[in-house]
Design a protein around this nucleic acid. Structure first.
Lengths: 203, 203, 203, 203
DNA sequence: TATGAATGAGATTTCATTCAT
DNA sequence: GATGAATGAAATCTCATTCAT
């Protein structure tokens, strides 16, 4: 934190790279950021560490991401994009019954989150930073609901929303409880899937 | 001054107060720490802020808690103690059926965690700092299992463990998904409770 | 912020400057450190004072010397290098008789130490910090012995070692007793030189 | 360092204890100080460490020694007293020849200093703190000279002073070079004694 | 654009000393 | 007197960010 700039300060934004070379560098920087955030947490991660991890100089990092929050935002956007794609792929090939589809989405979501630990960390921080506005919608939940709406027989909007919410909550629980680090891993996952399916398959 | 300590360096520990005044001060410091951790997160919380919040000087804080991790540990211990008590109370007055008892414990756990947001923050950090040793047991889960073992008819050890695990995962999910900040709060909680009960009351 | 580093913590080392500007800065910082150590002693010297003396910001100092011991080490290395050179020069132009050479080295050593008071201070501290391992060899003594071995007639290894040790002890005595601050300075030095020469010139 | 007192401030002094109990406590505190100074150096020694070492409370320490310099001064006085006595004892039983007496005094001085490492540390600091006044006399040297004056045949005042100075310088050298930690200890000491005796017994 | 040096606010921590009981 | 808590100036160290080349 250095000088409190008193001029208008046209809020800085991550600059899009102009050349091929630049695009590669940005990708490398984001990869590095993901690793460092995952290892050290958001506050624990230093800009210097990110740059070094990417094999770039600190100056170079700042060329593309003028502040620390901006790199987090950019990483978040990239990860959410990829997650979106992964979920969409998991819903391919249908139509599926609601419970089957939910199970597949749950598995895909959990799988993605475990392979991209930085995502959870940045999401947390975003939530922490956001003004505590009630009921702010989860984009993730919306997307899940949209995908679930493609089940057959077609669920009502409410049913889809409810299923999306269940998937969301269970996946959070599984991540937070570090289910993947438990030796009983397979059994526990089966348990969660069964719980989800049971709750949906009906009554 | 500070001096490079070549002197044994007998890893610092929280000093126990010996006078009534000290005891009060320690309690106040822990209260302040809980608030600041809850508000700013572990890394975001500063020792200065904790001291100020407690109406103490920075030196006073360091007299009892010579490092930031130590105050986190002390707070964690105090919170876990209280949580233990709360859970034990929730299990009073039985005997209960397993699904009823589980539901009560779930409600008690969720309730406690929501009233003590610092606990989640510190738990997270402890896990993050711990060497990534596989399958290290959760004391909380053990205690839940022990309480659940008192259900009637008596569950097997495996059943108790499984129930404890479900409670744990669902509570994590509920916290992480900030269920309590959702306008639909009551309905969602009911949903979770039903899911838990259904999974236990059995197959 | 500061963050409890759970990250490997790869023991910090003085960073070598990569640019001309950095090299100049490092030299200035070491010069400043020498002055401040000489004036205030090791413990009394503050990083802030060193930085200010060098006309650098505290951050700049820490960029190159991340801890106080590290700057002391770097200064020690630089001084020992220079002392080495000075002693080698004093031994030039031989061959000399052992007692003559010893006298010259003694004078050179004393002269250097008096012009570089920080060296004695840092040496002291290094010894104090070192694990009390018996008989750890003095590099200085080794170098003196090597130079003395060039005397003619050639001394035995033992004779050279003994002479080196005498020079070392007498120089320590002269420094510690602050002979150079005594009004009788010239006479006292002559006395010491005579003592050394008498002890070597034989028998 | 706390408040800058603006009142006259009647310079604090070590308070003499009134009762038997107090005398014992003062002795214990000085013993503790000696150990801690020896281990950590003057700056590195903390008042808290001294108090703990003595099994006293910090408040109790300050009762007798209101500042850190004062405890150093008191310790210095006690040590110098004891050293004086030791030297006087070493000179007993004469008359001796000058070289014999010098050798005995040298041995006694070295022996005392090695058994009381705090003395060297405090002496250093006193010198460091003293305004750099030229030629300020060494009380120790004066006492040595006085004792040496009792040799037979009676030395001139100059001879006694010269011998005292040699003893002083050699003892400093031996301490600084940590002769006592060298495996060759006995041989090295013999060397020093021989050097001293040769220089005196004379020319 | 790339690089590494420079900056300084602010965080953690220490410790001599004073105060209240 | 004795005890332990309280204080705060000052020291060490960190790191996001800016600058100069």
């Amino acid at each position: 934190m250095t000088s409190q700039k008193s001029k208008a300060a046209p809020k800085p934004a991550a600059k899009a790279p102009q050349r091929e070379r630049g695009r590669a560098r940005v990708a490398a920087l984001l990869d590095a950021a993901a690793q460092v955030f995952a290892r050290d947490g958001y506050e624990g991660a230093t800009m210097t560490a990110v740059a070094k991890h990417a094999g770039a100089s600190i100056g170079s990092l700042y060329q593309f991401f003028p502040t620390k929050p901006l790199i987090a935002e950019a990483l978040y956007a990239r990860e959410m994009e990829a997650l979106s794609t992964a979920l969409a792929e998991a819903a391919q090939g249908g139509p599926w019954r609601l419970d089957d589809l939910a199970e597949q989405l749950f598995a895909a979501l959990i799988g993605y989150v475990w392979k991209h630990p930085a995502l959870a960390i940045i999401s947390d921080r975003r939530r922490a930073d956001a003004k505590p506005r009630r009921g702010q919608p989860s984009n993730l939940r919306d997307q899940l609901a949209a995908l679930l709406a493609q089940a057959r027989p077609k669920p009502t909007a409410d049913e889809a929303r409810r299923a999306a919410w269940l998937i969301h909550v269970l996946s959070k629980g599984a991540s937070a409880a570090k289910v993947n680090e438990d030796p009983q891993y397979a059994m526990l996952m089966a348990e969660l899937r069964a719980m989800l399916r049971a709750r949906l398959s009906h009554d």
